[in-house]
Design a protein around this nucleic acid. Structure first.
Lengths: 220, 220
DNA sequence: AAAAATATGTTGCATTTGCAACGGAGATAG
DNA sequence: CTATCTCCGTTGCAAATGCAACATATTTTT
């Protein structure tokens, strides 16, 4: 665990907890650490929801595959972020999604009961931990709402424009790189890759947009 | 407040709090009570996020309207449920959605800081309250995820089938009433009403489905 | 009961989309 | 260097969708 301490400190889940307190907190969470290769599953749909994950190193995708194998990327989990917490906190029996490493990743897995239950040794930092988790889940909730607003758009062009303008607003620049390849972007926007490619080309031809590889510029 | 006590008791936000404790808890929350007519806004997009709402009587829709006035129903809040909590808990500056009464409703509005901050008089029930809220937000998070899975479907027919099968699973019967009129259902599924109506007709003709008014039967 | 308002179904049509198939560019492995 | 693989753009085509306009049905109001 010691070797991960610097990574752990950076996680919002543990913010507002003094460094000294953090060490004893980590002891009573008795978490597991595990390394995953790109494409490896961290947990699978329909398995039991008992852990929350923290990305110490790497990046994770939360995905859902329907009956016919169409894959949807529901969320992208960046470094030092939390995932799987909603299913645990909601006390769901089975996971409705899978988590898959998008690149080689180091993951901390915590039994959610250790988080939610104030430990017998009266470790007082649990209260802060729960508050942190509340805030993180609430934020995720807003991100999901934002994604719903995104894929609620009726046309591919509207989805693309909405996505790009969100990125631009987020990074405060009209030129930015996106963290998706084309297939992933199409999955994220819930459209067909080739149709999206067609639309991107049309938008560039119309002068709305410029792009090369993953770097996009909004020209407006 | 006394007149609402029976309604308040039924809210999951206050579960696992003894009735005697609940009264003192309610005092330190210093909440407001307000009645809204059908179609009246409870809070509007872009206003400051400072309250969470509880539907004591009635039903609320969380909606978003885009630049051109297309309305999306992001969520339906049933009686005794919570709404607006995510924006408060995430400490969002401005609300990204509006809440509107879907029928005449009695709403309790609580300043979220009163919830999140353990009160100076050391009212110990706050811990339970925060845990309850955590669970509710987590559940809502799952519902949002479910909705994303729903509108991720590429065709109107798939969306309808997914929605109906969820309802059937939820109510454990193949015959059920839906809480939406046609326009609302179309908004919820993010499709055009007339196109949806066309598809519903086709599905009935093909024998997949039977419906009359808001009562649907899955025939498989 | 009549009138007005609202909700639902129908249809034609232009556009958008998904799908499948293909080709080229660039990266990677042997 | 060559073979292989992955990513991305292109295109033809059938099907799905949004949109507008209108017809019917149902509910509410007067």
């Amino acid at each position: 665990m010691e070797k991960y301490f610097d990574q752990i400190k950076k996680c919002q889940l543990f913010s507002n907890i003094a460094e000294a307190d953090l060490k004893s907190l980590l002891n009573c969470l008795s978490s597991r650490f595990h390394s995953f290769e790109k494409g490896e599953f961290i947990f699978r749909e329909d398995s039991v929801a008992e852990s929350v994950g923290v990305t110490l190193v790497g990046r994770v995708h939360i995905i859902h595959e329907d009956y016919w194998g169409n894959r949807t990327i529901l969320a992208q989990i960046a470094e030092h972020e939390l995932f799987g917490e909603a299913f645990s906190c909601a006390e769901a029996e089975r996971l409705p999604v899978s988590a898959i490493a998008d690149e080689k990743s180091e993951i901390m897995l915590i039994d959610y009961r250790k988080i939610i239950t104030t430990c017998p040794s009266a470790c007082s930092f649990h209260t802060q931990l729960i508050k942190n988790m509340l805030k993180l889940i609430a934020k995720k909730n807003m991100m999901l709402t934002q994604k719903i607003q995104l894929i609620s758009k009726r046309t591919t062009r509207e989805k693309l424009l909405q996505y790009f303008s969100l990125q631009a607003k987020l990074l405060n620049t009209k030129e930015f790189e996106i963290p998706f390849d084309r297939q992933q972007l199409a999955d994220y926007l819930c459209v067909d890759r080739s149709a999206m490619s067609r639309e991107l080309g049309a938008m560039q031809k119309e002068g709305l947009l410029h792009f090369a590889k993953n770097r996009f510029t909004i020209l407006v």
